[in-house]
Design a protein around this nucleic acid. Structure first.
Length: 361
RNA sequence: GGCCCGUUCGUCUAGGGGUUAGGACGCAGGAUUUUCAUUCCUGUAACACGGGUUCGAUUCCCGUACGGGCUACCA
């Protein structure tokens, strides 16, 4: 048959009747009866080796000491042990460690590539643009996750340091980590916790680092920026973002004029009778000496006192004028960041908008 | 189906024969901030079930249930 060119494969012949004991760093001993094992294909009909053969030969040649892989490999490890024995390499066989699997955020089963699109979460480190839509996905990096935060989060999925520490620098992680303290059960991917780690890392990053990180996102939006500007935005927004792109998305008004005003907030805070005061306030901003947060705040407080205005009648409107929303950095910090010209321009624009609103008293 | 692995708050987990079963995320409430967020405080909530072993089991053993993985000339 061989001579006539009949296609064939070469298999591993597994003798029945013996127990194969796999020594695992995480699960200790796992034993399998050889009678349960099939005669795995080693060389395919096209002459190429299967993973099982290639894996053992490669690892042996490369003098691999530890095979650390997902739990889905545990069943085939018995074959691998047999292969090491078959080649007479049992003395240099690597140590095995089978890691618990990461499970879907919701539902059953292990986390898979498809889950990224399904749940709107990253699954792989980097984005990938495939031939078709279904083969494309967004990576942790492009989603705005910091590498260190992602590693930190992933490390705690299944592993525990033995202390209550959760935030680890790479050095601390390397020092504290050990295969032996990895757990055995599968861990569900908790996106909320992943976000929390990222937020923590963002908060701990310096303004200069954040500026560097947000630069590509700012450029993609067509903003012309410089390091000083980006650092200022980092300082203003770092306590209120979760992902790097948030700086540009949620803090867009620090890059460009306000696009829209929170209508409900305007309706609630604006009153036609405030117009003269607001007008006077704009004048004040235009002429006040120093344009720094602290002095601006003191000045506006004095202004409010002199005009018998309550903070609630002034500050929310200033915020709305500068940012368009009730969220965001402290009002006077934004004013200082924007500078006199932009601040006054926004106050003017906002006043025009406010006046178009139909208001009661 | 068969084989292998696993099972502590909703989630990630610590712990381990006698504990008020600890921490974190989330959620809820409060303090601070006349925004949002941050920060701080408080609260919420768990040992899958049944048998053993034991003076005593969440912890050890055995079952059951449930969950996961493998069962390709894929990796």
């Amino acid at each position: 048959m061989l001579a006539s060119g009949t296609p064939y494969v070469i298999r591993l012949k597994v003798e029945p009747g013996r127990e194969i004991v796999i020594q695992d760093l995480i699960r200790d001993q796992v034993s399998v009866q050889s009678s349960e094992l099939d005669d795995k294909v080693l060389l395919k009909a096209d002459g190429m080796p299967t993973y099982h053969l290639a894996n053992i030969v490669d690892d042996h040649l490369m003098e691999i000491t530890h095979v650390i892989r997902g739990e889905e490999w545990l069943p085939s490890t018995a074959h691998h042990v047999l292969l090491y024995e078959g080649f007479g390499w049992q003395d240099t066989m690597p140590q095995f460690a089978h890691l618990p699997l990461i499970m879907k955020p919701v539902g059953n089963g292990k986390l898979s590539k498809r889950d990224g699109a399904k749940f709107g979460i990253p699954v792989f480190p980097l984005s990938w643009k495939g031939e078709v839509e279904a083969d494309s996905f967004t990576g942790f990096r492009e989603a705005g996750f910091l590498p260190a935060a992602t590693i930190n989060f992933l490390a705690l999925l299944g592993w525990h340091p033995g202390t209550d520490q959760e935030i680890f620098s790479m050095e601390e992680l390397i020092a504290a980590f050990s295969i032996e303290s990895i757990g055995k059960s599968g861990a569900r991917f908790d996106y909320d916790k992943a976000k929390w780690f990222n937020q923590k890392y963002l908060q701990q990053s310096s303004d200069a680092e954040l500026a560097t990180m947000m630069a590509p996102y700012a450029a993609a939006k067509g903003y012309s920026t410089d390091a000083a500007l980006l650092e200022g935005i980092a300082r203003l927004m770092k306590e209120r973002v979760t992902f790097v792109p948030d700086f540009v998305e949620e803090g867009y008004y620090l890059f460009e004029p306000v696009r829209t005003y929170d209508e409900d907030a305007v309706a609630k805070k604006w009153s036609a009778r405030l117009e003269p005061s607001f007008q006077a306030l704009i004048e004040w901003f235009r002429n006040t000496a120093a344009f720094e947060a602290i002095t601006l705040e003191q000045g506006v407080k004095t202004f409010m006192a002199e005009n018998t205005l309550k903070p609630g009648e002034v500050l929310p409107l200033l915020r709305l004028a500068l940012a368009g929303t009730m969220k965001g950095p402290a009002v006077f910090d934004m004013a200082e960041f924007l500078g006199r010209d932009a601040t006054c321009a926004r106050l003017e624009a906002a006043l025009q908008f406010f006046k178009t609103r139909i208001t009661t008293v």
